[in-house]
């Protein structure tokens, strides 16, 4: 099959990313505003009001401790939400047919949506970071690890959102994973506490939670403290990304749910 030239592939990719960015900025009241409000409340309530009574966590000021976790939480939720709702509504409106009739290869479609999800996840991550500066001082311990961790995590959850959208057949299906999987795993993923506080058994259980590694990897990048080795965390994210990419590409190739 003689495909598109690399310039044409790049144009197609850019088209998808621009369309995705246009979408989430157009509906900024639904996409950009809520995390700003929620996170400000978290900072005020957990950081300032309650945080001042908690004192130290993991050897740090409580406010400083939770900031990296809250940034990660916003990145995870928003990357996932962007791709799942955008791709599912595209499928639902049959708008996906615009792509099916065109010569865009599947890997470009996937890359386009993942980057779209990252654009939203990371923009919000950045906004939340800037907000947090009003409450605490951030000094970055290891920029490389911090940036790599947040980029890869955003990519991973964008992929997850994509797969969820491929599987979903009705609107309910796009909120199942965020509600029953992502939210609990994030809350229990060491955003608000160090797992050192937990009894041995629960600490063991927590170690099976992938989000714990991402949050801690990112926290290490900023604060230099972590419950786990940040390189183990990066390696794990990469493994997950590889697996989900293969699954997503297979689904696209089979066209399940998008082609009769």
């Amino acid at each position: 099959m003689s495909g598109m030239s690399s310039a044409a592939l790049f144009t197609a990719f850019k088209t998808i990313v621009v369309k995705e960015i246009r979408r989430f900025t157009r509906i900024w009241v639904q996409t950009l505003l809520p995390p700003v409000i929620t996170m400000t409340l978290y900072f005020i309530i957990f950081g300032n009001l309650i945080g001042s009574r908690i004192g130290q966590m993991g050897g740090l000021d409580y406010m400083a401790f939770i900031v990296p976790g809250l940034i990660m939480m916003s990145v995870i939720t928003n990357s996932y939400a962007n791709v799942v709702s955008s791709f599912f509504s595209m499928k639902f409106q049959r708008n996906i047919e615009e792509l099916l009739v065109s010569p865009v290869p599947n890997w470009i479609i996937l890359a386009g949506w993942v980057c779209g999800g990252m654009a939203r996840g990371l923009s919000i991550g950045l906004i939340v970071t800037v907000l947090s500066l009003a409450f605490t001082n951030l000094t970055i311990h290891n920029l490389g690890i911090m940036v790599t961790t947040v980029f890869l995590t955003s990519a991973l959850f964008s992929l997850g959102g994509f797969i969820n959208a491929m599987l979903a057949t009705k609107f309910d299906d796009i909120s199942i994973v965020p509600t029953f999987v992502l939210t609990p795993l994030t809350y229990l993923g060491g955003v608000f506490y160090s797992i050192d506080l937990l009894p041995d058994f629960w600490r063991g259980v927590s170690m099976a939670n992938p989000i714990l590694y991402m949050v801690n990897g990112f926290r290490y990048g900023i604060l230099g403290v972590s419950d786990v080795n940040p390189f183990v965390s990066l390696g794990m994210i990469l493994v997950f990304i590889t697996v989900l990419t293969i699954i997503a590409l297979r689904m696209l190739a089979r066209g399940k749910g998008i082609r009769h």
Binding site: M4, S5, A7, A8, L9, T11, A12, K14, T15, I16, V18, K19, E98, L99, S102, P103, V104
Partner: peptide
Amino acid sequence: TQAGYYGIPL
């Protein structure tokens, strides 16, 4: 956007 999917620059 449709043109973009065919690789045609904006």
